[in-house]
Write a protein that binds this DNA or RNA. Structure first.
Lengths: 193, 193
DNA sequence: AAGATTCTCCTTGGATCCATTCGTAAGAAG
DNA sequence: CTTCTTACGAATGGATCCAAGGAGAATCTT
């Protein structure tokens, strides 16, 4: 249940339904989701540790400001390193990968891009890459990957080129399905910017 | 207060006072620290998101298993990238850095190494590197750096060579104080392994 | 005697309540 | 009129209470 609350708030932050700087109150979200303050509190705490929210003691939380442009190159480099590493490991256990689930995500991403639904686009874009992380290693890489990619998604720079973004992801998925390590790696690295 | 609880539990995990696989109960820690379950709950949740603990729903938490040797090279590479980046940024705002505080940490690290106190050694080793992160950028890089370095500290490989570790850190601090970017970067990268 | 089923207990997850603290606004004094 | 002080309010942080779920042990049946 806490996971669902966390997912929903994260989605609202990343899709900028909650604009940068918005003050976030626990009780308001609790009423909105129809639950108590406790799970909302936990969710906000986790999102704070992910860097999506900032908290001042006894003062309330607010949506974190966009990261400095100066650290953007570092974030991109880190994400490229993690995801290319995970992709290589994925091919090492290729037979146990559920490619159907990945294709399903790509399909949902296509629908979201066609519908121009930013919230869904961001969600399934993250889901696409998270699939690679999860496929490579269960529960070890995600905790390092999530704070990095969350920060990148804060300024999602593809606001206009949604179908192009979908095409890139579809090409990556196809290269993975074909077992082409070189091509999938190159396409994946080109997709991260 | 929650921060203190989190710090103490993290320290106990990293110093292996709580061995790998130990089942962690909220109420026991609450009694141990003389507080209620609520802040302990928050602390455990945060450490879970850092990857130091693993939780099964309604089943209890336990200290996370050591990371696979296979992902160790990735973790080292990520940490080198973040810390060298931070070091470069540190020199960009060199005048506003509190070098006294850094020297203080080095002094505490020396005492801990001489006393062979693993808990303190790990704590001040992390504090040394965290100082560089904080000096480069307030509150943006830490949330990416912490999950990575925590995972590395889980298998702290310097169990024997403590004074050597201290010498390395002292040399890095001296190079920073002298303003030698090349040397400090080289020493820092050599210290991360 | 071995296995399965059920009962019980232990632990987490969620809800509610109270204290604490920070911010803001209003009022009074200079 | 401006500024400082004080008081009130709102939101978080911590403590306590209740429900839910799973694991383990004991017992019954085959």
């Amino acid at each position: 249940m806490r996971e669902q609350i966390t997912e929903r708030i994260r989605s609202e932050v990343l899709s900028q339904q909650l604009p940068v700087g918005t003050r976030v109150r626990e009780e308001a979200l609790a009423k909105q989701f129809g639950v108590s303050r406790a799970p909302v509190r936990d969710a906000l705490l986790q999102l704070t540790s992910e860097g999506l929210l900032v908290a001042k003691p006894n003062c309330g939380m607010s949506v974190a400001p966009l990261p400095d442009k100066a650290i953007q190159p570092l974030v991109v480099a880190l994400r490229k390193r993690i995801e290319s590493f995970s992709l290589a490991r994925l091919f090492g256990r290729f037979e146990s990968i559920d490619l159907e689930a990945h294709a399903e995500i790509v399909g949902r991403l296509k629908e979201a891009c066609q519908a121009a639904d930013l919230s869904q686009v961001v969600y399934y874009d993250m889901a696409f890459h998270r699939f690679i992380i999860d496929a490579a290693d269960d529960r070890q890489l995600v905790s390092m990957w999530l704070p990095i990619v969350s920060r990148m998604m804060l300024n999602y720079s593809r606001h206009q080129n949604w179908m192009e973004s979908y095409e890139e992801h579809a090409a990556i998925a196809e290269a993975i399905r074909a077992g082409d390590r070189q091509l999938s790696r190159r396409l994946l690295l080109e997709n991260i910017l």
